[in-house]
Amino acid sequence: MFEFCVEPSQLQGLTWLSCYLTTGKHMAFYTSFGTVLLLLALTAPTALLFGFCGAVASRSAIAPLRWIGRTYVAMVRGVPDIVFFLFVPIALDQGFEYIRHMALCPEVTEPIRRGNDFVVCTAAKLPLNADPQWMHETYGFLLAVLSFAIVFGAFAGNTLRGAFEAVPKAQIETAQAYGMTSRQLFWRILLPQMWIYALPGLSNLWAILTKATPLLFLLGVEDIVYWARELGSMKTSAFSYPHPNWQLWYFLGLLVFYLLLTWVSDRAFARLMARFNLGQGRTGSDTAAAGVGR
């Protein structure tokens, strides 16, 4: 990085440190913080969308749609996360490649599954073997986003479903009494009221999602945990900057990062909740404010 870093073995003290902390490897470490934030930024809305579709489907009047919605939510909830994280990307990847294989090389008659091997024709590889490394990494990253979204979408779906159920029946019945169609009722009454019940659950889910980001490494994405472990591990003189095991310091850094992230998220959710509460005029408990005792 700096000009004086040419001969690391000659460096001392702060100079050494400044060179050490600006190696290409450290740059990759710093970049990986962005990767994690990007993952969160992409996963959260996608998961919310999946969850929303799942929740709406599971409440649908159309039976097959309802089954799909319920199966999705129940299945993902029932299976341990880690199993899903190991299964989904492989299944997705092989699924995509299988479809491409069928479409792009119909002339290949050999089976795709040969013993242990999963072999598609060269043109069906995703990304192509010849594609640059960044495309492989991006593809892997997007698979990870999709896997996270599927898993967390199911949790979100459950939360949203519960929130839909939590909207008081009287509110819905009133809308019906005033002649609303089920569509109008959904968009005008159910959806706006549902969020207040969903928000605590979603905020919790966000916290879990944040904490789950180290699973990225399991999916082959080099995230902050990977780099902290790699950089912190003892370095012999095979490396330019040998040092003993410094993982403690690197993980301390991650600790601070995650705590900061949680702190910022908590504040954001608190503000969101305050806005919703204001919008719904729920200053105290709803029934108490209405002067109604049931």
Binding site: G24, H136, Y241
Partner: peptide
């Protein structure tokens, strides 16, 4: 191009077992 693609091979390694294989300070 079909052949050219066939010629790119992806080498899988661990990157954590010096001196056999490791990630150097440049990240390679």
């Amino acid at each position: 191009s079909g052949m050219a693609m066939a010629q790119t091979i992806r080498m899988g390694t661990e990157g954590a077992y010096p001196p056999y294989n490791f990630i150097n300070d440049a990240g390679q």
